[in-house]
């Protein structure tokens, strides 16, 4: 196993702090892209897609850490994340449908009742 760790371009990934940093960066970048999407897009569905994207990013980080520490906690957690994401997707989509019927639009800006 030590050999594996020393080999470049290894499969599965031979984790070092630097490799972890690569994965974490990808995770953070994906999260940020999701964030930007959530903040800029006005289509409710796309906004929900962006939240899924952020879940995704979190998943990458979790699995990378799981690999780094060579245990299964991270992966277990990703399962739960997936569960929640699925629940969220179901509810969110139901909501989207519901809202769409009300306003005939998917725009999040159509809903501004909380305006002060």
């Amino acid at each position: 196993m030590v050999d594996l760790l020393l080999a470049q371009s290894a499969f599965p990934e031979a984790m070092s702090q630097h490799v972890l940093a690569h994965y974490l960066f990808v995770s953070a970048a994906m999260f940020t892209i999701g964030l930007v999407g959530f903040l800029t897009r006005r289509n409710l569905i796309i906004m929900f897609l962006c939240t899924e994207m952020m879940f995704q990013a979190a998943g990458i980080a979790l699995i990378a850490f799981s690999r780094f520490h060579l245990n299964y906690e991270g992966q277990t957690f990703v399962i739960f994340v997936l569960t929640v994401a699925a629940a969220e997707a179901a509810l969110a989509l139901a909501l989207v449908v519901f809202l769409f019927r009300k306003r005939d639009s998917l725009s999040a800006e159509a809903w501004a009742e909380m305006k002060g």
Partner: peptide
């Protein structure tokens, strides 16, 4: 990426 990280199941 998950596969690279040896998380095939995930």
């Amino acid at each position: 990426l998950y596969i690279l990280l040896a998380a095939e199941f995930m």
